[in-house]
């Protein structure tokens, strides 16, 4: 399948933070949810993709073109939304449009008007007076008005109420109907992803943990619950992370089948949520860190 975004062996080091050998590919025509805890490197990765940061090593290509060499051409085809407001504050939405519009060859005023209507955005009001939700809608309007083929969003749903989040997902779903568009967005509200994400890319501590079809996560991963007597040095190795109490344990496995074979009916096996996966991956790491020290 065709990839729209392709990161290969990307390294980027900052003070106290590092992206290590990051290789990610985002499939054309699908929605990829980008998850990871705070400080996992989500924003850094998105900035690398937008060429706001340059990698120390490794290559980034978008639409099959090298990002460094074809930056303008690539950005013509990208619509972006950041988690914070990046518009000038002292002007109106119409003025903001006048600033952005000439940058894009495929800018479409009628599309812009359509979203402005849909989101009920005031055109003549100072952007400074917009609420957080309105600012997000304004960003989205601008991002969607030039027929972008790739839509990149950094935490678009954070700080939005459930109704607008739901509306947003509907809009995104409509956008990908023709199969030509790709959506890549980071979020920590993982329930948004249940409804729309085709692929999940999970990074932790600057490292790529996995990119999988959403349903495969349910097939492979499982939350396992059982009595405390089932755990010993060997069985503990079967899990990514374990949470123990006096009454039993709760653990995450990446190999559901194997756990079923080992434990059979002695444990309860449940579907994991993305939050479980994030949480237990972190827990597992703490355990490993302890066992190394």
């Amino acid at each position: 399948m065709e990839s729209v975004i392709e990161l290969q062996h990307v390294y980027k080091a900052f003070k106290g933070f590092e992206l290590k050998d990051l290789s990610i590919s985002v499939k054309k025509g699908f929605v990829t949810g980008f998850i990871g805890g705070n400080g996992a490197g989500k924003s850094t990765t998105i900035k690398l993709i937008m060429n706001l940061l340059q990698p120390d090593s490794g290559t980034i290509s978008i639409f099959g073109m090298d990002l460094k060499k074809n930056e303008k051409e690539i950005k013509q085809r990208i619509g972006f939304v950041f988690d914070s407001n990046i518009f000038y504050e002292n002007i109106t939405l119409t003025e903001m449009k006048e600033i952005i519009k000439p940058a894009y060859r495929k800018w479409d005023d009628s599309l812009f008007d359509q979203y402005v209507d849909m989101f009920e955005l005031p055109l003549k009001k100072n952007l400074k007076t917009f609420s957080k939700g309105m600012k997000m809608k304004a960003s989205l309007t601008i991002a969607l008005s030039h027929h972008a083929e790739l839509i990149i969003m950094d935490e678009p749903t954070s700080g939005l109420d459930p109704i607008f989040r739901s509306e947003l997902l509907d809009i995104l779903r409509n956008l990908i109907q023709n199969g030509e568009r790709t959506i890549f967005f980071s979020t920590h509200i993982t329930t948004d992803l249940d409804r729309i994400a085709d692929y999940i890319t999970f990074i932790h501590n600057g490292q790529h943990i996995f990119t999988k079809e959403y349903y495969k996560i349910e097939e492979e991963f499982a939350i396992v619950k059982g009595g405390p007597n089932l755990l010993d040095r060997d069985t503990e190795q079967e899990f990514i992370g374990i949470r123990k109490t006096n009454h039993g344990f709760r653990a995450l496995t990446a190999n559901k089948q194997r756990i079923e074979n080992i434990f059979g009916d002695t444990v309860i096996i449940e579907k994991p949520t993305l939050e479980d996966i994030m949480l237990y991956t972190k827990k597992g790491e703490e355990r490993d860190a302890r066992s190394y020290s």
Partner: peptide, 18 residues
Amino acid sequence: ETDETSSANLLLNSLPYT
């Protein structure tokens, strides 16, 4: 100065400008 804020830099550099 108007373009010096980090948000303005984010915006300009995300648009198709080098």
